[in-house]
Design a protein around this nucleic acid. Structure first.
Lengths: 250, 250
DNA sequence: CAGTGGTCTAGACCACGCT
DNA sequence: GCGTGGTCTAGACCACTGT
């Protein structure tokens, strides 16, 4: 099975072997793969060699390790789909006078007034330092963090309205509905999607395993030509979420 | 600087230190960080400990290692933006009778007729096994792979037309323009965006470093209600590309 | 050639989770 | 207590890149 004198490094061969076993279904999702000690004995290699193979599989997102318990084939989590149609639906609901359906996450919100930093100012087309309403929100599905975001609205737009009230968090129906309730109608949305690896602190706050890429979205909402909201770091763990866009061509 | 008896593992402290040095600009993009031997001596730790720190930094996408040369702070590559407006622009150009502007990539294409597999059949709303035209395309920017994709068109739609001609690869103006040239007008596009880590073979064919996440797009084009094209694995290395979507709300 | 990272071994002690 | 993975050491040889 493993050729210690082959061209391919032993730990890579071992990773290949385990990867094949996982993909073939030999070790199904959630199942423990053999312990490091067992693999050392079975293949006659040192522990470090086994661990190097584990590093590879972790990097590929195939397995997760739990201290004191073992190494397990990664469970595919339920994927939540974020659809571009949700903006349209929220607006439609407002027009109909009904409550917009919105993902039933539990959300933890920070809601405060601060001066806009350079990046936010550029997105909102205002001077840096202009007061904005900042909202940091962590969306939870049960206890599992599902998405976090930091979004900004020019304070001038919402000051004195119910939207500026921290007690109203989280906004039912999202930003589109909240802005519509104070007479600001969002007419277009621009989203910029990127992928990157999590920062060390994000692996904690979002409870993701190493080897989990993140989808990040930078969103700007416009009322006509005017930017009315900027969300700079909508972060979705790649193993829990996907984005769907529907585009109509003329 | 490093406390061998602290709560935090030595290799993590070392990674923290190097990460801070990189983020502070002490080691700028492309710059070599100290060799493993130098770090061993400076911090009085074993080589494996240094290497564990390197694994962390690689996983975070902060550094790349080159055998025999050294370890370097990752260069940020030029980002290419894929915009949803390109579909609209291609259609507009066709209407105007001009040649659609299309990214000037060099593309390598495989062009063949095969039976649809289950996944493609579902996306195209046809029976599995129905003949489809498969196109595998690797977009290159210079010599750097920029994007790869596998796309499928029902053969029935294009057979006997210039579009079915392998000599016409790559399609100028993309799928939208090619289909328009044979009288099939794309009216809507659905894209599903995910992030995942590269497979071992993809790190080779796309020439990405480990620790580089991939953006994947599954795209379906519709003419009215009918799916006319499915692209199942549009893969964009996360360090080279981003996706932009513009949505208009009624 | 010297210097770099890549691979591998053998052994040690620790921290965690379960029974 | 026992088995698991987490951390760390010391040393060895190899493979690649440059001068």
């Amino acid at each position: 099975m493993i050729d210690p004198h082959g061209d391919r490094a032993v730990y890579r061969q071992l990773a290949d072997q385990l990867r094949a076993d996982i993909n073939s279904g030999e070790y199904g999702p959630g199942v423990a793969i053999p312990s490091e000690a067992a693999l050392m004995q079975r293949y006659g290699v040192a522990r470090n060699t086994v661990r190097l193979a584990m590093v590879m599989l972790r990097e590929e997102g195939l397995v997760v390790t739990h201290h004191g318990r073992g190494t397990f084939v990664r469970d595919s989590l339920p994927i939540r789909r974020l659809t571009s149609d949700r903006y349209r639906a929220a607006l439609q609901a407002v027009d109909d006078g009904t409550t917009p359906e919105w993902p039933e996450y539990r959300a933890e919100a920070i809601h405060q007034e601060i001066p806009a930093n350079v990046r936010v100012a550029e997105l909102l087309d205002i001077q840096a330092g202009t007061p904005v309403l900042e909202r940091r929100i962590l969306f939870l599905d049960g206890s599992l963090p599902q998405q976090m975001s930091m979004s900004y609205v020019p304070l001038e737009l919402v000051t004195g309205t119910p939207v500026a009230d921290p007690q109203r968090e989280p906004w039912a129906g999202g930003t589109v509905a909240a802005l519509a309730s104070i007479g600001v109608r969002v007419t277009s949305v621009r989203e910029l999607v990127r992928a990157r690896m999590p920062q060390p602190d994000e692996t904690r706050s979002l409870a993701v395993a190493v080897g989990t890429p993140m989808l990040t979205v930078t969103r700007t909402m416009f009322a006509g030509d005017r930017p009315v909201e900027a969300a700079v770091d909508i972060i979705v763990p790649g193993d829990r979420g996907e984005l769907e866009y529907r585009l109509d061509l003329p």
